[in-house]
C-alpha cells in the first residue's frame, strides 16, 4: 500500500470514528468481563473506510476488486464487472431474477454480500454457455419459447440448471414447486416447465 493511501485511511478513520467507534468500543469491555485475552487489531470487525480489496472467482476467472462491504454480489456483478446477464428484479429475495450459483448451488445474489463470497466458485448466466454452444437448458428455453419479455429468463435458467442436480420428483407439480422462487410476470410458466422437463427427459 502506498504511503498516501495509508494517510487517507487514517484520516478517514478519524472522520468515521465518531460514528463507528461506539460499536467497537464496546468490545474490550465484554472481553474483560469474561477474562478473555484482549481482541487483537486483526480480530476487530472492520470499520468502514470505503472500499476493501476483494477477490472473486466468477465463471472460472479471478477478479480483483475494491468494494465496500455493503455491495451485494448482484450489484458487484452488474455495476463493477459489467456482467449484466444477472438481473435485478425486486432486490429483496422475492422474485428470483438475480439467481446465480455459488459452489454449484442456486442462491439469490441480491441477498448476498460480495465480500462474503471470496473463495467461492460463482457461476452466472454468462458462464453457463455461449451463443455458439449454449447449455442444453438455454437451448430448451429457446426451443420451447420459454419467455416473453426475457427479464426473468437468466434467473429461471440458473434455477432450472441447479434443479437438475437437486432432489426433485418427476411430476410437473414437483418442478413447479422447485421453481416457485422464480417469478415470471409475463406468465411463461407453461413453456418454462416444458423446457425443464425436456432437458430432464421427463
Amino acid at each position: 500500500m502506498s504511503e498516501e493511501n495509508s494517510k487517507v485511511s487514517r484520516r478517514s478513520f478519524l472522520r468515521h470514528a465518531g460514528v463507528a467507534g461506539a460499536g467497537v468500543a464496546a468490545l474490550p469491555l465484554i472481553s474483560n468481563a469474561q477474562n478473555a485475552p484482549p481482541i487483537s487489531e486483526s480480530e476487530k470487525p472492520y470499520v468502514p473506510d470505503g472500499a476493501q480489496d476483494v477477490r472473486l472467482n466468477i465463471n472460472g476467472k479471478n477478479y480483483d476488486l475494491k468494494i465496500e462491504p455493503r455491495v451485494t454480489l448482484l450489484d458487484c456483478l452488474r455495476e463493477n464487472l459489467n456482467l449484466t446477464g444477472t438481473k435485478k428484479g425486486c432486490d429483496h429475495g422475492q422474485c428470483g431474477a438475480c439467481t446465480i450459483h455459488v459452489n454449484g448451488k442456486r442462491v439469490n445474489s441480491c441477498l448476498s454480500l460480495a465480500i462474503a463470497h471470496q473463495g467461492d466458485a460463482i457461476t452466472t448466466i454468462e458462464g453457463l454457455g455461449t451463443t455458439q454452444k449454449p447449455h442444453p437448458m438455454q437451448k430448451a428455453f429457446m426451443e420451447h419459447d420459454a419467455y416473453q419479455c426475457g427479464y426473468c429468463t437468466s434467473g429461471q435458467i440458473m434455477s432450472a440448471t441447479a434443479l437438475l442436480k437437486e432432489p426433485c420428483g418427476k411430476a410437473a407439480g414437483d418442478v413447479r414447486e422447485a421453481m416457485s422462487g422464480n417469478i415470471c410476470r409475463c406468465g411463461a410458466y407453461k413453456n418454462i416447465l416444458e423446457a425443464i422437463q425436456d432437458v430432464r427427459g421427463v
Binding site: S31, A36, K44, P45, Y46, P48, L113, A116
Partner: peptide, 18 residues
C-alpha cells in the same frame, strides 16, 4: 455503511459479538 469481518474462530466470533 457497516464494517465486515469474517470470524476465523468460534472464540473470536463470541468475543467480537456485542
Amino acid at each position: 455503511s457497516f464494517g465486515y469481518k469474517k470470524a476465523g474462530s468460534l472464540d473470536e466470533a463470541a468475543r467480537t459479538g456485542a
